[in-house]
Design a protein around this nucleic acid. Structure first.
Lengths: 253, 253
DNA sequence: GAATGCCGTTCGACAATGTCGTACGGTGCG
DNA sequence: CGCACCGTACGACATTGTCGAACGGCATTC
């Protein structure tokens, strides 16, 4: 039976829409966005509600994502070998660098954050696990793009987040080439003004890049007086990446 | 069309199974567990793979949860008003109590952890957001059960985790009555030996309990010499719960 | 205050759709 | 080498989901 099951595809589309929409959405709203008849969408929603993937506000009648979906989704992390192996090393990278650590994987041309260690200074920080970062404007993303067989798909233009964001595909290509040669990437105020990130690739036993680990923080702490990444921090990041890769079975290189 | 859509229900069952199974599962394995023909399960898996909800190991052919599901699931937190409102208060509770803070909601008779603040002491801790705790053996759970209109369903026996776990439904009923009267709950080594937790209810504008906030830590720190919860910590927890409730629109009580 | 628009929901007939018995190539084990 | 098991493909059948039309409820409008 080669051919996807229509109703499941549609259910997934509904969930994706509810996830992106941020706020609650109504049946009619979803139906319009998906270009489907209202009763069809309603049937899907009813089923998703039954299994706990969506919830409905009793008063407004609108729908939002459900708790069951959240719980099942978070189980993904348990099976994620990359994250499991990286737990210890990312902790130690956080202590050595005194900065917050993130681990990401490429997912639909964006960086999916699968692990996040807070900066060890008791400051208030928001957990970013599960979030998506733009791949062309983050160190994690550049590392992943540099080794991605597909490369960057130029179907949509590169969005500028700050004045320093690389928006020219050719320039980005050059930057990725540099990342490949140096073995690490940086993002200097390219995503958020005043924020810098550094990252290095994590490779598995077949030497393919399966993820990236990196730190991020204010430019004053991560860069030297020439606004270049501090070499000691770069070393820490690269060492952590190598350690995790070794845990994943990569041949030490 | 009153009646759930079969294929979506089955797809959800597959995802649930993959989430619980911890490790990767094969088509045949899933088919046996769900009592469905192998090709049927395969069709579902193929569709789920297409939308990124499951991934297949290229070598073993086995399936596991996918990144898209994780990302969509984590979007649940954005729409969760309880969690959003509670962010600041749980941080301050963590600083005041110097213990780790968790916020939970009732989900299928278990406690779904929707927020987790680490103990502010730089120690290594695992993030528990998305995890499920037994409701009869945790302070969060008792608080939620105490005010739950459904109450505890006695369809399955209460599992014992330690010697102190309450397994008798009658005793649990008494304990819940006490929780209702005192307005807070404790778990003294009932889930993990040496671990204690305290919690208080979060109520919304209609005064229904929508969640619980609490702290947890070693018995030496949370209890006094009589192995009773320290009254100052109880106050901190209750004050935090009241503050969050007020944010949710509850009339201060 | 009747009328109007939009909402979430139900009904039910039609046919498109998913189901599943059967079968195929590949892999690991004895 | 044969066997058992795997993940996957095919295709006929009828079960199943789809969607036009319609209903009651709720605001807003005139």
């Amino acid at each position: 039976m080669p051919g996807p099951i229509q109703s499941i595809e549609r259910a997934a589309a509904v969930l994706r829409l509810l996830a992106s929409g941020a706020r609650r959405m109504g049946v009619a709203e979803l139906a319009r966005a998906l270009e489907l008849p209202k009763p069809t969408v309603h049937g899907i929603l009813r089923t998703l509600q039954l299994v706990g993937f969506v919830e409905q506000s009793p008063d407004t009648g609108k729908y939002q994502l459900g708790a069951a979906l959240f719980h099942i989704g978070s189980s993904y992390l348990d099976g994620n070998e990359l994250r499991t192996r990286a737990l210890n090393w990312s902790d130690s990278l956080a202590s050595r660098s005194m900065e917050s650590v993130r681990i990401g994987t490429l997912h639909e041309n964006q960086v999916l954050v699968v692990h996040h260690v807070f900066r060890p200074d008791n400051s208030r920080q928001v957990l970013e696990v599960g979030a998506l970062l733009p791949s062309h404007a983050s160190a994690l993303g550049k590392v992943l793009l540099a080794d991605d067989p597909v490369g960057l798909t130029d179907d949509e233009p590169l969005k500028a987040y700050t004045a320093a964001t690389i928006t020219d595909p050719d320039l980005l290509g050059d930057a990725l080439e540099q990342v490949r040669q140096r073995g690490w990437a940086s993002d200097i105020e390219e995503l958020v003004d005043g924020e810098v990130s550094l990252a290095a690739p994590i490779r598995d036993r077949r030497a393919v890049t399966v993820g990236a680990v990196g730190i991020s923080g204010p430019v004053e702490r991560l860069c030297d007086e020439h606004k270049q990444p501090r070499t000691d921090l770069v070393s820490y990041v690269r060492e952590a990446a190598r350690s995790i890769s070794r845990e994943l079975g990569a041949i030490p290189w």
